[in-house]
Design a protein around this nucleic acid. Sequence first.
DNA 1: CATTACCTGCAA
DNA 2: TTGCAGGTAATG
Length: 276
Amino acid sequence: MPELPEVETVARSLEPQVAGRLIVGVERLDWARMVEPHPAPVFSDLITGRRILRAHRRAKWVLLALDAGWTLALHLRMSGRLTVQAPDDVARPHVHLILTLDNDRRIFFDDERKFGRVRLLDAAGLAALDAAHGPEPLDERFTAAALARILAGRRTKIKPLLLDQRLIAGLGNIYASEALWLAQLHPLAPASAIDAAGATALHAAIRTVLHQAIAYEGSSLRNYRNSYGARGQNQEHFLAYDRAGTPCQRCGAAIERIVVAQRSTFFCPTCQRLPD
DNA sequence: CATTACCTGCAA
DNA sequence: TTGCAGGTAATG
C-alpha cells in the first residue's frame, strides 16, 4: 500500500474522528506478532484507558499521540487499512486489531497480508523511530540543496536510493517512478552523477508528485482506503507507474517496465536520459 | 549488492 | 500454476 500520500490521508482523516477520544477496549488481537509489545494481553493492558491526543504522520507511520507520553505507531506496509467504524459494523476476516473508543466507534486495523505492525512507543522509542528516517520531503527544510547533499557521493542508482527511508522519508515504489518521470531522470542513473540542475528538478518533482497525490487522497490500487473507507483517486493520474506499453505523455514513446533492485520500475526510455 | 522471508489474493 | 503486488528486515 501506502506511501507518504496515503499515510498522510489516513492520518488527516483520522484526526477529527479520534482526537480527544479514550481507548476503552482492545479486541480481535488474533495476530500477536503484529503488535509490540506482545503477547496480546500485555499490549491490551497498556493501551486500555489511554486517551488519543492527535493523529499525525512520520515517514510511512501513522502516529497516534496518547496521554502519559505514549505514542501508538502503526505501519500499514502493503495491505493495511485503518478505518473508523460505526458501532454495528462487523469486522471482516482480515481485521486483526480493534480499538474501541468512548463514543462507541471502533478503529479497525485490517491487513490482508499481515505485514502491518503496531508499536507502542515511549518518548525514547519515538525518538528512535524519528532518527531512523530521513527528512520529510514536504518539510520546508527539505531543500534542493539538502537533496543534492544526499545524492552527492552515493554511487547507488537513484531509484533504489529514493526508496531508502533512512535517506528520504515516505517515498515508495509508485512515487519514486512518478518523480523520476517528472524530473526526466533515468531510474538507473547513479545518484552521484546527478548534477545540481538534476537535483533541483528532482526536488521539485518529488514535491509536486506528493502534493498532487495528497490532493487526490492517495492512490488505491487494491487495498488502500482512507479512514472513512473511501478510495483515493490518484491512480487515475499516473504518468509512469503501471503504464508499461502506453505512450509517454511528454514524448509519445512507449513507457517501459524494468526491474531495479527487485522492484518494478516504470520510465520513458526516450525522455528520461542517463547522465553522460 | 542480491536473495529470501514475511503473508494472502488475484490475474495471466 | 506461476508471478506479481503501495514494504521492510534479515540474511549471504
